[in-house]
Structures are given as C-alpha cells and as structure tokens.
C-alpha cells in the first residue's frame, strides 16, 4: 500500500475558467503592488544603511524603556523589536535594536555603540550585544542596485534558456509566472512587514529557480504530448499534461515544503524570514506553473507540429525553388 497525495489518475479540467484564474492572478499582482507602493518594504540595514544590534539579557525586554533610553541619545530613527524563539529559555530575552545611519557614507562609530550600550545597561545591567551589524549608506545604495540587477538577470537568463529549448510562447508564459511569483512575494513582505534584507533577495532568486523548475516540468510534458496527440485541441493536451504531472508536482512541492517547514520551526529566528519567503514561494510557484504559465501558453497558442520545420521557413525555400 502506497501513500498517495493524490490519486494516480486524475482528470481535472484546469482550464475551464482559465481567464478567471489569470484575472485573479492579475488582481493579486495589482494588490501586491499597491501594498508595496503604499506600505513599502521594511528594509533591513543592507538596503537602507544603519545599524542593527542584537541584545541579550536575563531580564525581560521592556521595549518602551529601551526606546526611551535610546531616544535620549538623539540617534535619529530607532526601532526596537523583541525576538521570540521557542528555544529561548525564560532568562534569555533577545531584542533587535535598529538605529538609522549616522554618517553619509561610513558605518557606525564605536563611540555610538558604546553610548547605546551604556544607555541600555541602565535598564538591563547584564545586557550583552550578541551581534552588531552596520552598513554605511554608500554601500547599501549599491546593494539595492545589485539585488535588482541580480533578479532581472536571473529572469532574463531564464527567458533566453526556455526560448532556446522550447518556443517563445513557453518562455513568455514562464517569465510572466516568475514575475507573478516575485511580485506576490514582495507584496506579502510589505503587507506582513517582515524585514527585507539581502538574504531575502537570495530567497527571491530561489523562488525564481523553483517556480521555473515546476513550470519547465509541465511544459516538457506539454511539448511531448503536443507531438503525441496531434488531433487533440491545445486545451485538452494541456489538461492531460498537467493531470499526468500532477502527482509529481504535489510530491516535489510536498517534500520541499516538509524540509522548509522543519527549518522554519527549528532553524532559529535568524533565518526565519528567509525560510518564510521560500515557503511562500514554493506555494505560489506551484500555483503559478499551472494557473499562470500554462494559462498564458493557452492564451498565446503554440505551433503544433514539432517534427517538421516551421511553415514559414519551408515556404520561403519553396518559393525560391519555384
């Protein structure tokens, strides 16, 4: 007896309402974009410059008192958040303190750190700085630029690869799905307000990779079935293909999620945001390979006969001969 996530033979009609699905995705993207435009992302210091200090103390974190103590130092914008993790005992109280950049270029000075330490020691005498990270505005500006270029490059490279391996309709479908995934992920980050730092860019690119992985497997089957079932309509062929790969799609997404969820729960608070992005990406990526990438392929249409050269080239040569 085998564990089966879904029956081995399915015949769902995924494209009965494909316009509706595309419409929903479009609305979601607009919402995500609006959230990004209105709320903005909670950029970490990698992208806005500044300093984050991870403090640890045996006394409970009093966010208000911390804030009052630091406000007195006139360091500009100060953000304090308490960090929770099931692995912390009652005598481990962790907080993240973020102060804005103090200088136009450079990272924080040791004097500033010492002042912050002294101010916090007034409230919690045993407070320790477990980590101090500081990024000067000069670098952070460049980091944003690099990150945007990296995501754009990844999507571009993928577009070219799929174009070469398949047809332009496939490439376009896959890339729209990727953009969809990236935008929805950014939307979730702006809506939930999770810190957006360099590691999240890595997560975004992994989502790009994963979503693509999924899309390519479906497309590969579509390509195969287009040759196999010459007389069936495109919609039917695509339905068959997705049903045939559905079992694999679920297996892979499920094992990946299994691994990611264990990392989310047990991997510690430092990478939780990063793992959250990937979990969300796996879910959205799986959805988008069917309801965005394939739906777009259906919308655009695709040439059917892969065994012969395309009509246009054949005709051109025919004309020359005649």
């Amino acid at each position: 007896m085998r564990l089966k996530l879904i029956p081995s033979e399915t015949s769902f009609d995924f494209f009965k309402r494909w316009r509706l699905w595309l419409g929903i995705s479009a609305v979601m993207m607009v919402l995500a974009f609006a959230s990004f435009a209105i709320r903005g992302l909670n950029y970490g210091i990698d992208f806005r410059g500044g300093t984050t200090i991870r403090t640890e103390s045996s006394e409970p974190v009093n966010v208000g008192a911390y804030r009052d103590a630091l406000q007195a130092l006139n360091l500009g914008d100060v953000v304090i958040s308490e960090v929770f993790d099931p692995s912390f005992g009652p005598d481990r109280n962790v907080a993240m303190v973020r102060i804005s950049a103090q200088d136009a270029e450079a990272s924080v000075t040791p004097e500033t750190i010492d002042r912050v330490r002294a101010a916090l020691q007034e409230i919690a005498p045993d407070v320790e700085f477990v980590s101090v990270e500081s990024v000067g505005p000069k670098v952070s500006g460049e980091l944003i630029q690099t990150a945007v270029v990296a995501v754009a490059l990844a999507i571009g490279a993928v577009l070219v690869y799929i174009w070469l391996r398949f047809e332009w309709q496939f490439a376009l479908g896959a890339v729209v799905a990727l953009v969809h995934d990236v935008i929805l992920t950014i939307g979730v980050f702006s809506e939930v307000g999770i810190r957006f730092d360099l590691a999240i860019i890595a997560a975004l690119l992994t989502i790009v990779g994963y979503s693509l992985n999924d899309t390519v497997v479906v497309f590969d089957r579509v390509r195969e079935n287009l040759i196999k079932y010459k007389s069936k309509g495109l919609k039917e062929v695509m339905n068959v293909s997705i049903n045939e790969t559905l079992s694999r799609t679920f297996m892979t997404s499920f094992t990946t999620l299994l691994a990611l969820i264990s990392l989310f729960v047990l991997g510690g608070d430092v990478i939780r945001g990063f793992v959250f992005a990937m979990i969300w990406g796996v879910i959205v990526g799986t959805y988008s390979s069917i309801f965005v990438a394939s739906a777009i392929l259906l919308w655009l249409g695709v040439k059917r006969d892969w065994s012969k050269p395309t009509d246009t080239t054949g005709n051109q040569f025919g004309d020359v001969d005649a």
Binding site: E105, A106, V108, F129, V130, S131, S134, G136
Partner: peptide
C-alpha cells in the same frame, strides 16, 4: 573609511 561592519558573537 569603513563602509560596512558586522560582529557576530560566538554564542549566536
């Protein structure tokens, strides 16, 4: 000029 600095405690 120091543009970026990070200290990670060994316990973390």
């Amino acid at each position: 000029t120091f543009l970026e600095e990070r200290t990670i405690g060994p316990e973390l």
